[in-house]
Design a protein around this nucleic acid. Structure first.
Length: 188
DNA sequence: GGCATGATGGCCT
DNA sequence: GGCCATCATGCCA
């Protein structure tokens, strides 16, 4: 996967990332849930323009934007669309594939369906933290491979936000048991 | 199953 | 000072 893949609107990238395989130092799995955000979007960190915290969102596409939320959890985004639009895709859930034992140890949980079923959980499982903020996801320790087979993608409302709740920019593999929450949208 | 709550840090008004 | 793109736990039904 090349940086050009990410140089598109976040909503398109978010959809196309479903089924892609993401690992950090060989630990990870298939992306099954994402959300798109951009600078026009009141729910986005980039909505009010660049700040120290959200600076990576206004940088080159294909880089990581990692932030801390509620003081304890990390969330992992991939920056999209150059031209300073402040867009990114939040990775919300993975289907664990590689390094299950490592993820279980980091999470303190053994059930596969709970290792990466949420943005904070997958960061803990893959050991993603502020160290990787701004790092290109197209180079080690990241590995990111496009989906190899067609995936049924559903979309619906995003989770955990209080504004722009009508913007249906959450994408997920239909019927996957590895989601943070069940999908209620329509098949795309 | 659902709902309430605490942990805990940086950013914004 | 208040607000979060969260998670785990505990209580009640």
């Amino acid at each position: 996967m090349t940086p050009a893949f990410f140089d598109r609107p976040a909503e398109a990238v978010a959809r196309d990332l479903i089924g892609a395989v993401l690992t950090v130092d060989g630990v990870g799995g298939r992306i099954v849930e994402t959300e798109a955000y951009d600078g026009e979007d009141p729910a986005s960190h980039s909505y009010r323009g660049p700040t120290m915290r959200n600076a990576p969102m206004f940088g080159p596409p294909g880089r990581a934007y990692v932030y801390r939320i509620y003081g304890l959890h990390s969330c992992f985004n991939i920056v999209c669309d150059a031209a300073g639009s402040g867009s990114a895709v939040l990775i919300r859930a993975l289907q664990p594939m590689e390094g299950l034992d490592v993820m279980q140890a980091r999470r303190g949980v053994s059930a596969r369906a709970q290792l990466c079923s949420g943005p904070g959980k997958l960061c803990q499982a893959l050991a993603i933290d502020a160290r990787l903020n701004g790092a290109p996801v197209t180079a080690p320790p990241f590995r990111l491979g496009a989906a190899t087979e067609p995936v049924k993608v559903a979309h619906g409302r995003r989770i955990g936000i209080s504004v722009a709740v009508e913007t249906p920019w959450r994408f997920a593999e239909a019927g996957s048991p590895f989601l943070s929450r069940p999908m209620q949208g329509k098949i795309a």
